[in-house]
């Protein structure tokens, strides 16, 4: 709680992909370090948050976990544009979830910010015996579409941390190289009061009461 104000950047993520691929589980594993065996169908959108450290900078990730169900698609589209990072998830044991990636990607390309970093995730890597999509196929799809790629397991937590951090690293690099207009909050990034880069956002600077509230 006390460190809530001590961040260099806030970055917004969304998690998208078919229903049941493990989006909510990935988020839960990342924020709470636990696994939820039952499928709690996400209704609309849920929020989660966690700090990560990238290149010595404190970055607060605000993560919106969206519903994979078709009926919520129109709602989740409202979240694309404001996100700096997107985790596009499929289930390596269900081929159809891999096939639907094209649709998801079209959606993202249409509604998301052009600079949004997209990480393709093949989840449930612990279920090797039931695998229906090979690592190479996933990797090839990512390469063809200019995405990052990783296989994860929300159950064993393999690569979960890495997936979120890797995405943050890439976004941080984009910030450093000036690709992101960090002064436009609509792009899913906000500079924190700790940031020493000089120009801070008016809201952060005006009250300056960040540190006293801890």
């Amino acid at each position: 709680m006390s460190s809530s104000f001590n961040y260099d950047y806030i970055i917004k993520y969304i998690i998208i992909g078919d229903t049941g691929v493990g989006k909510s589980c990935l988020l839960l594993q990342f924020t709470d370090k636990r696994f939820q065996p039952a499928h709690d169908l996400t209704i609309g959108v849920e929020f989660g948050a966690r700090f990560v450290s990238v290149a010595g900078k404190q970055i607060k990730l605000q993560i919106w976990d969206t519903a994979g169900q078709e009926s919520f698609r129109s709602i989740t589209r409202s979240y694309y544009r404001g996100a700096a990072g997107a985790l596009l998830v499929y289930d390596i044991t269900r081929r159809d979830t891999f096939k639907h990636l094209t649709t998801w990607l079209e959606d993202a390309r249409q509604h998301a910010n052009a600079n949004t970093t997209i990480m393709l995730i093949g989840n449930k890597s612990d279920l090797e015996s039931k695998r229906a999509v090979s690592y190479e196929e996933g990797e090839a799809f990512a390469k063809a579409n200019g995405l990052f790629f990783m296989e994860t397991s929300a159950k064993t937590s393999a690569n979960v941390e890495e997936a979120f951090v890797e995405t943050a690293t890439n976004i941080y690099e984009k910030i450093q190289s000036g690709i992101f207009d960090i002064h436009n909050e609509a792009h899913g990034i906000k500079i924190g009061p700790m940031h020493t880069g000089g120009s801070s956002l008016p809201t952060g600077a005006s009250n300056g009461n960040g540190a006293c509230c801890q």
Binding site: S4, F5, E46, F47, G48, A49, Q62, N209, G210
Partner: peptide, 19 residues
């Protein structure tokens, strides 16, 4: 709204209530 309350708290907005 559980999700928004999480967000409100996680973004340190409760700390802004005293102001």
């Amino acid at each position: 709204n559980v999700s928004n309350q999480n967000y409100f708290r996680e973004t340190s907005c409760i700390q802004r209530i005293p102001a």
